[in-house]
């Protein structure tokens, strides 16, 4: 079964590529929702004295604060999380509530900080990728396997960002951290596969790939399971801790993508490379 699966390596490479192209399309058409750290604005968690319907609360705050954009992100009766499109002074926000509830947490980011953060986020991601690529080349000293690993990591990131776009998860400083963390998880399985298949000599290639897959899938499943737990606990017990739920969600998308990119694309490329080499 696996031998047949491995023989059609062109198909193995094409499937993840299609998913990557779909993700790029999704990002291009659907866009990415930027978190307040990157676009500026204010986010608040309030405990209302008594429940207020979201549209009513939105209108009240728009009028009181004289702003165009107020989005209720979460309304669980008395606990409300909302986002304001512009930076609003905490004092103004507290008085806009006019005794209807108390502010549990408040975060306000001005345009100066958000513009700076956005630039730095992109630089950090670019350099992270450059450093990672250099490290992979140093380790393997072979062009094709190194490119396969880098491509797989890049594909994981693109698919994860596609997932963020699809499920409207904001691109925040936390999710950028998760995207870079994906590099770690992705490279783990890719290096495992490349080392086991290319560097070992015992047994047939298919058997080596099979063993690597067994190990790699166990790794992926444990990582996905722990992230699902983290996501579930955060959403149920501490919905205000969006830092954790965003990181968990991005890693879930990325780890699922990693199964595709490692065991289809990377395996396909290595198989093709070995055939070309002999």
């Amino acid at each position: 079964m696996l031998e047949k699966f491995m023989e059609s390596y062109k198909l193995l490479i094409i499937i993840p590529m299609i998913v990557v192209i779909l993700s790029v399309g999704l990002i291009a058409f659907n866009g990415l929702n930027e978190g307040i750290e990157l676009k500026g604005g204010s986010i608040a968690t309030i405990k209302l004295n008594e429940p207020i319907p979201s549209p009513v609360l939105e209108n009240q705050l728009k009028t009181a604060l004289n702003v165009d954009e107020v989005d209720i992100l979460n309304n669980n009766g008395n606990d409300v999380t909302l986002e304001i499109g512009t930076e609003v002074n905490p004092a103004s926000f507290a008085s806009a509530l006019s005794g209807k509830g108390q502010v549990i947490s408040y975060n306000s980011i001005g345009p100066v900080l958000s513009d700076e953060a956005l630039g730095q986020v992109y630089w950090a991601m670019l350099f992270a990728f450059i450093f990672m690529s250099i490290t992979v080349f140093i380790i393997f000293r072979e062009i094709v396997p190194s490119i396969a690993i880098i491509l797989a990591a890049a594909s994981d990131i693109i698919i994860a960002i596609g997932g963020m776009s699809l499920f409207n998860i904001p691109l925040s400083i936390a999710s950028v951290g998760a995207i870079l963390m994906l590099i770690g998880y992705s490279v783990d399985t890719d290096i495992l596969l490349t080392t086991r298949v290319l560097r070992r000599r015992e047994g047939k290639v298919v058997d080596r790939a099979k063993e690597a897959m067994k190990t790699g899938l166990t790794m992926s499943i444990t990582a996905i399971a722990s992230m699902v737990v983290l996501y579930a606990v955060t959403v149920i017990f501490i919905p205000q801790a969006s830092t954790l739920s965003n990181i968990a969600a991005v890693l879930i998308f990325g780890l699922l993508a990693d199964i595709l990119t490692t065991w289809f694309m990377n395996l396909g490329m290595i198989r093709w490379y070995m055939e070309w080499r002999t």
Binding site: A124, I139, D188
Partner: peptide, 9 residues
Amino acid sequence: TLIAAMLPL
């Protein structure tokens, strides 16, 4: 590789 990716951040 992971450390290399995290250093810029």
